[in-house]
């Protein structure tokens, strides 16, 4: 199984754990990731809020390079995935748009190379038996609120799961031996860049997500989006302060939990890089399964 790999900007900086854990998880599952050489930013989300054609053209250059190599594109970041998929669909659905985009990027792109969300590949393409066969440490003690956010499930043409009650990530976590909770905010928006540009509005959007996850009995959140993770992890302390609440809710990328269950060293997955301490819960999981302490 070989894919062109589009990490996107966040995965080389604020979302570095997502890149580390993606590569480790792919290695165990035998997914060959070929990083698109000299890829450019997909423009999410500033591009499509500024100009429609620009928002389609920026991802198109990356897709064109992948198409030349004859590969579909594996994309971990939910926002990069949504923008790249929108480009693929625009090119496939309209010959006129295809021509305009090709003129703008000065490359050929026919929509043959498909944008695929990494979560979709790992949770849906790969048989859960194959995932289970690689589990070395079951995720005992994990009670996950799987948080899909917006861009993996909406709009319908882009999403690969139910837009109101998706299950891909829940099923994956269960295959890894963890528990998941039913909760109401799994596809609610985290505010995207709102917590940066409009802090008070952003904090309120985040507070509802923490509260709902906690009330449902979760002890962690799991996500597939670097922007969601940053909002939920880095800003959790700010929200706790503003609302005089304590959540203590570590936030994981689904690839971190997958890698952990596959027996990869936590530091190789970037689990020590979080703002809300994740190593406490990680060590509980490792101990419960008879693993060794790695803090």
């Amino acid at each position: 199984m070989k894919y062109a790999y589009f990490p996107g900007c966040s995965l080389s900086s604020t979302g570095i754990e997502y890149d580390l854990s993606t590569r480790e998880t792919a290695r165990v599952l035998g997914i060959d990731l070929w990083e698109i050489p000299e890829w450019n930013c997909c423009g999410a989300s500033s591009g499509h809020l500024t100009d429609h054609l620009l928002s389609l053209a920026l991802p198109a250059r990356n897709m064109a390079i992948a198409e030349e190599a004859g590969l579909d594109v594996a994309i971990p970041c939910a926002a990069c995935y949504a923008r790249s998929k929108a480009t693929e669909l625009a090119v496939s659905n309209s010959a006129e748009m295809k021509q305009e985009i090709e003129e703008v990027i000065e490359r050929k792109y026919e929509g043959k190379s498909k944008a695929r969300a990494l979560l979709d590949i790992i949770a849906n393409d790969i048989q859960s038996e194959d995932v289970k066969n690689n589990v070395q440490k079951e995720l005992k003690g994990i009670k996950a609120a799987c948080y899909y956010g917006c861009l993996l499930v909406r709009p319908l043409a882009v999403g690969f799961d139910d837009p109101e009650d998706p299950q891909s990530m829940d099923n994956l976590v269960k295959s890894l031996g963890g528990e998941t909770v039913d909760w109401a905010y799994k596809t609610e928006c985290c505010g995207a860049s709102c917590p940066t540009t409009m802090p008070e509005t952003g904090k309120k959007m985040l507070e509802r997500i923490f509260k709902s996850a906690k009330d449902a009995g979760a002890n962690c959140l799991v996500t597939a989006c670097p922007m969601c993770l940053n909002n939920l992890d880095m800003r959790q302390g700010q929200v706790e302060k503003a609302y005089s609440e304590k959540y203590d809710m570590p936030v994981f990328y689904f690839t971190e939990l997958t890698g952990l269950a596959f027996g990869v060293e936590p530091t190789k997955l970037g689990l020590n890089k979080h703002f809300v301490d994740a190593m406490g819960l990680v060590n509980e999981v490792l101990k419960a399964d008879g693993g060794r302490e790695t803090a």
């Binding site: 450019n40 500024t50 100009d51 054609l53 620009l54 053209a57 920026l58 250059r61 305009e100 003129e103 703008v104 990027i105 000065e106 490359r107």
Partner: peptide, 15 residues
């Protein structure tokens, strides 16, 4: 290439 993408959408009226 990326700079030209911006130039090309500007030529088509993008602000």
């Amino acid at each position: 290439e990326v700079k030209r993408i911006f130039e090309n959408v500007r030529k088509r009226g993008a602000k």
